[in-house]
Amino acid sequence: MPLKGINKSLQDFKRHPWLHGLSVLTITISLTILGLFFLSYRNFTYWAYQSSPKTTGTAYLNENLSELEVAQLNESLRALKGVEDTQFKSRQTVLQELGGAYGQKELSGPHLADLFQDIVELRLQSDLSQTELEKLKNTITAMPQILEVDFSAGWFSQLDDVRKTLSWAGLVLMVGLFGGCAFLIANFMGMRHQARKRDLEIMQLLGGSRKFVLLPFFYEALLEGAIGAAASLTLLLLFKIALSETIVSSWLQKLGAQELLFLSPAQIGGMAVVGVLTALLGTLTVFLRFEDR
C-alpha cells in the first residue's frame, strides 16, 4: 500500500509540479538555514576544544620551600583524582619564559623577582565537571605548601555558557522555521486541495473513504519532506566542501583545527525529521478542510 500511495503521489508531482516544487523549495530553504546553524554550532565547539584541549591550573607556592618539600608536593598533587601531570617552575624559570614571550632572554629589574612566586603547573583531566573542579581546587588550596590556586576552568565554563545560549538559539530557530515553513506549506497544500477539490468530491461520490481520499496528501507530504531534506543536505555538503578548501588551508589551521566538520548523524536525522514533520503539519489544513459528503 505505501508503495502504491507513493507512486500515486509521484503522479501528482507531475500534474502539479509548481505547487509541489514550492513546498519542496520552502522546506529546502528552511532546512538549509537550520543546517547552517547546526554546522556553525558543531564546528564552533569543535574548534573551541581543539584550540584549548586541556584544563590547566597554576598552584602558587609559599616562600622558601625546600627541594624535598617541592618533590613531596608534586607527588601529592599527582596522586589527586583529576590531576594528570604536574611541573614545578621556579620564579627564575617563570621570568625566563616571560622574557622569551617579550623577545628578551630574561626579564631583569630591581625587585622584579619578588613579584613572582615558585609555581607548580597542573594539567587536569578534560572531562571534569564544574563540581569536581571546585572540589579539586579546594583540596589543593588546603595544602600547607600552597598559597593560591588558579584553574583555566573559567574558560570552559564560558564555553559551556556560549554552548547553552547557542542551543537555546538553535531551538528557537528550529521552532520558528518549523512554524513558518509549516504555515507556508499549509497554504501550498490548501492551493493543491482547492485545485483538486472537484476530483476529491468525485472520489467521495464514487464511494472513496476519508482514508482513500486523504492518504495521497499524506504521502505527498512525506515525499516533499524527504526531497526537501535531501536537497538541503546536499547543498550543505557542497557548501562545506567549498568552505573546507578555502578556509581550512588558510586561517583555520592557525586555530589548531585540522578540518571543517559536516553535520553529525544525529543532526542529519534531526533535519530529516524536521523536514518531514513540517510537511506533515502542512497537510493538516487539508485534513481540517475535508468534509464527509
Binding site: 472520489m203 461520490l205 464514487l206 464511494g207 472513496g208 473513504s209 459528503r293
Partner: peptide
Amino acid sequence: LPEYRQKVGFIFQDFKLLPDLNVRENVSLP
C-alpha cells in the same frame, strides 16, 4: 456513506470523469 455508494452506481449528467486519469484509471477507481 462510502460503503453505501460503493454498492450503488451513479451516472451523472456531466459524467464527472477525472480529467487527469485515463479511461482505465477512471473506470478502475471504484
